[in-house]
């Protein structure tokens, strides 16, 4: 399948992008409640020691996301 969008997982450290939408409905419910909405500016901060986990900033709020979660958030960059 051709990937048309990049996701948070593809962001390099220090790279910023705006969230477009969250594909998984359950995660969408959780993340929107935490303030990560379409249009939110996301910055990749760093990867976790054992990998597969990401430290991001969404509109100034620091969040820890798993790989699957990061893959679920489509971004515009």
């Amino acid at each position: 399948m051709l990937r048309r969008y990049r996701t948070v997982e593809n962001l390099k450290v220090r790279e910023c992008a705006r969230a477009l939408r969250i594909e998984d409905p359950f995660l969408a419910s959780r993340l929107t409640a935490m303030g990560l909405l379409p249009g939110t500016l996301i910055e990749m901060i760093r990867r976790a020691p054992f990998g597969h986990t990401y430290y991001i900033k969404a509109d100034g709020v620091r969040l820890a996301l798993r790989k699957e979660e990061a893959q679920s958030i489509l971004v515009d960059a």
């Binding site: 359950f26 935490m34 986990t53 709020v61 620091r62 969040l63 820890a64 996301l65």
Partner: peptide
């Protein structure tokens, strides 16, 4: 489904 989605407080 299992998730992390955790806020890291100041």
């Amino acid at each position: 489904l299992s998730y992390l989605a955790l806020e890291l407080p100041v």
